[in-house]
């Protein structure tokens, strides 16, 4: 489904920094992959390249056979919004908007008609178990609840791939456990998930773990 071949991302800021170096990675439909590695090893850059937030400097990246280098800005933005769902360590919920409005945000730039957004947002909140908090102010939610809202926001746009950057990084282990269980059940429903994490507990629950060091993909473990 997703195929990276010899993908590199090099920053030239005085010195050359190889954030990604010659990465080959293929992701199949329905996989649950953990990307592990020390800080600065290029995990987040990999996720950003996969999610079309960042351009590789060299190499080929194909999504369902289409080389993303051939996409113009409009198609890239559309693919980013509709193909990928993002979950961040810092949640990035908008203050001053209710939970359900935050969830609807993922559909604002897509093809979902305005009238259908509320319905799909509530479905997604139901899925993460927060339908009852739909009118709450996100600032009044706990960390775990906020991350569930962020997951619901990603789910509402019905992405093919969920990209999670340290989703449990700000959470205590019990709450993190709940989030991991939720991701596992979403994967069981057929959602492809790639999660960047430091947490070895997460690694133990996924189908495949890839490890990164200095921008290179070093070890792949299948369970």
């Amino acid at each position: 489904m997703l195929a990276l071949e010899g993908v590199s991302k090099v920053y030239r800021d005085g010195v050359e920094i190889r954030a990604l170096w010659n990465v080959d990675l293929t992701v199949e439909e329905g996989e649950f992959i953990a990307v592990m590695g020390p800080s600065g090893s290029g995990k987040s850059t990999l996720l950003n390249v996969i999610g079309l937030l960042d351009h590789p400097t060299s190499g080929a990246y194909r999504i369902r056979g289409v080389d993303v280098a051939d996409l113009d800005d409009r198609s890239r933005s559309a693919a980013r919004g509709q193909l990928f769902g993002f979950v961040f360590q810092a949640y990035h919920l908008l203050a001053g908007r209710s939970v359900v409005e935050n969830v609807e945000l993922s559909m604002v730039y897509g093809p979902v008609p305005t009238r259908a957004r509320r319905h799909r947002a509530l479905d997604a909140l139901e899925r993460v178990g927060l339908a009852a908090r739909r009118h709450s102010d996100p600032r009044k939610l706990s960390g775990g609840e906020r991350q569930r809202v962020a997951i619901a926001r990603a789910l509402a746009a019905r992405p093919a791939v969920l990209l999670c950057d340290e989703p449990t990084g700000n959470l205590d282990s019990a709450t993190a456990e709940g989030i991991i269980t939720l991701l596992g059940s979403l994967n069981a429903d057929g959602l492809t998930i790639i999660v960047v994490t430091h947490d070895p507990d997460v690694a133990g629950r996924v189908g495949r773990t890839v490890e990164m060091r200095d921008g290179r993909l070093t070890v792949t473990t299948r369970r």
């Binding site: 980013r80 509709q82 993002f86």
Partner: peptide, 16 residues
């Protein structure tokens, strides 16, 4: 800034 990033992540184009 994070909101702008998030909007881009959910498919917003610069013109949006």
């Amino acid at each position: 800034t994070p909101e702008m990033g998030l909007r881009r992540a959910v498919g917003a184009r610069p013109r949006h």
